[in-house]
Amino acid sequence: MTNLIEIENLGKRYDGFALADVSLTVEPGSVVGFIGSNGAGKTTTLKAALGLIAADAGTVRLFGEEIRPGTSALDALKARIGVVLDTCAFPDTCTVKSAGSIGRAAYASWDSARFAALTERFELAPKKKVSELSRGMGMKLTLAFALAHNPELLILDEATAGLDPLAREDVLDLLRDFMAEGERGILMSTHITSDLEKIADEVICLDAGRVVFSLPKDAITDEAGVARCRTAELEAVLAANFLSADAVRIGRHGFGCNLLVPDRFAFARAFPDIPVDAATIEDYMTLTLKGESR
């Protein structure tokens, strides 16, 4: 089965920033969440995946074909992708209807009826100008545009940012519907990690241009945990060598500390007196990036 995206050892250097050895795969039928702090390199990776920038090292394959920025072969691949970047992409003077005209000109597979249905679902009147839309409505327009040509792959960069919780849930429902049809995939960069808990299969975290972890979402939310320790309990856990030295991540606070544990059930069996909660993706990322090591 051909992967939708396959990035191997991607490298890109700018003044003061370098993306190095980034590898990721989006398999058909999977949603890959892409997380990390601002400036970690997520958008640079997405730009390279879309051929907007040329990589200094590594390879990017879309639908099994290695991409070369600026070639017409890349056009055919881009026609199979829906993209939502972090702002409403259309200029202020554009109307909802004219966004549809642009889509019809750009994509051979453009489905005007689907675009009309999506804009109606999002309550976007055809004559409404982009300048009259809120940020959230603008993002919905971009999402409707991305979905209306029946793409096989969605690349979303902060697509749910600026949406209220109900609108976000609506968007997530749309993404679930999208994934229900065929062997499609989503690569989704976001700071709203709770969205990923609802939809992602895989979570990749980037920091300072490098992949820090790449895990199935269930390994984080179903298996990992955060142990709520007092200082003495932490010392006991560390002394017992329950965790390998390089896996220890501790977040200290006024009343004790949080310890990231990869298997909360095993931890609970080993230390029944220490409470351990399920980890959220945010817990996992925060402790991994900011936690003290041993």
């Binding site: 600026g70 055919a76 881009k78 992708i81 970047l85 992409a89 982009v130």
Partner: peptide
């Protein structure tokens, strides 16, 4: 405005 120029390059259209 609003990254239109960048977004436009994500459409099936080359720089030329």
């Amino acid at each position: 405005q609003g990254g239109w120029e960048r977004f436009r390059l994500t459409l099936p259209i080359t720089r030329r």
